[in-house]
């Protein structure tokens, strides 16, 4: 009997998970830089500018994946038990706060932007909901009992670390292209090195947690040695972790960094972040039906 992975959620959901995480991560990067008193409008502005639009584009992928895209507004209706409804509320509040934050640069609201207290309050609120946006997707997948690969406390953590890391990388990428001062980029790269190292550990423990039931073992086999393995080893491990880690280490240790390697490293890292979501979704093997000693793999998963 060969257990099969779910096929209902595929690349468009992966794109949504990635963009929502990356956008929220970039927003947090910008806000932290602002609170730390970094020069505006460089890194803080880039982070905030990336936040709301990325999440919005991600949500468009989500809406297009719906069976009835025109009826997406129904998603706010039942926040009692459904993580889609809860997440919709979290992400909506984040987008509203992010849009307001963006709007602070538009005349005549720049007066509010000058008042640091007001901006900081908005930043902290926005960062809270950005964390919610990064974490809830892991909880959403984790709430699905038939897929043991997702039903683990490590998944929200994995998504959170990956979201922060890709968010920082997106800020580095745009910052480098926009010619932001190199010192700021170097600091972000150091932060990202720590995040990538942390992500490697989380990924290791994530797979360690798959030993428990046959379906999660099947997921691990599928991802590590099955049809999903090329995406995982080339996409997630090489593109997403090793290459950016190596290039960033080289960049922070070298006397003079090169813009081209920074751009290359962050682009690889972002592609790896997208593929991580894709790999997790494609690895979601469903539990078999059990009747006595017999087990039946679902054939229309």
């Amino acid at each position: 009997m060969i257990l099969r992975a779910q096929s209902k959620w595929s690349w468009s959901i992966a794109a949504y998970l990635f963009l929502a995480g990356m956008g929220a991560g970039a927003y947090v990067t910008g806000v932290v830089a602002d609170l730390a008193g970094w020069e505006r409008p460089s890194i803080p502005a880039i982070g905030v500018c990336l936040g709301f639009p990325s999440v919005l584009i991600g949500c468009m992928f989500l809406v297009l994946d719906l069976g009835s895209p025109a009826n997406f507004w129904r998603a706010w209706r039942k926040p009692q038990t459904s993580w889609i409804a809860r997440g919709t509320i979290i992400i909506s509040i984040f987008m509203i706060l992010g849009a307001i934050h963006l709007g602070l640069w538009v005349w005549p609201f720049h007066i509010l932007d000058q008042a640091a207290d007001c901006r900081y309050l908005l930043s902290i609120l926005g960062a809270l909901f950005a964390f919610g946006t990064m974490i809830y997707t892991g909880i959403l997948l984790g709430a699905l009992r038939p897929i043991a690969f997702w039903s683990t406390a490590m998944l929200p953590l994995l998504f959170l670390v990956s979201a922060l890391s890709t968010g920082v990388m997106a800020v580095i990428l745009i910052g480098t292209l926009a010619g932001v001062a190199e010192e700021a980029i170097r600091v972000l790269e150091k932060a990202d090195i720590l995040l990538i190292a942390l992500e490697m550990f989380v990924l290791l423990f994530y797979f360690q947690a798959t030993h428990r039931v046959p379906e999660s073992r099947a997921s691990a086999r599928l991802v590590l040695a099955g049809t999903v393995a090329p995406s995982f080893w080339i996409g997630v491990v090489c593109l997403g972790l090793l290459i950016p880690l190596g290039l960033e280490l080289a960049s922070v240790t070298a006397a003079e960094g090169s813009g081209a390697t920074t751009v290359l490293g962050t682009l690889c890292g972002l592609a790896g972040g997208l593929l991580l979501r894709e790999v997790i979704l494609r690895g979601g093997v469903l539990a078999p039906l059990k009747a006595g000693r017999f087990e039946y793999a679902l054939t229309n998963p």
């Binding site: 959620w9 069976g67 129904r74 679902l298």
Partner: peptide
């Protein structure tokens, strides 16, 4: 009249008994 076709139920049902026809 309330469903929007998010497919959450299709993935959540352990018995594979949910269907969406495009």
């Amino acid at each position: 009249d309330l469903c929007m076709g998010c497919k959450y139920c299709m993935v959540a049902c352990p018995y594979g008994q949910r269907h969406i026809v495009p």
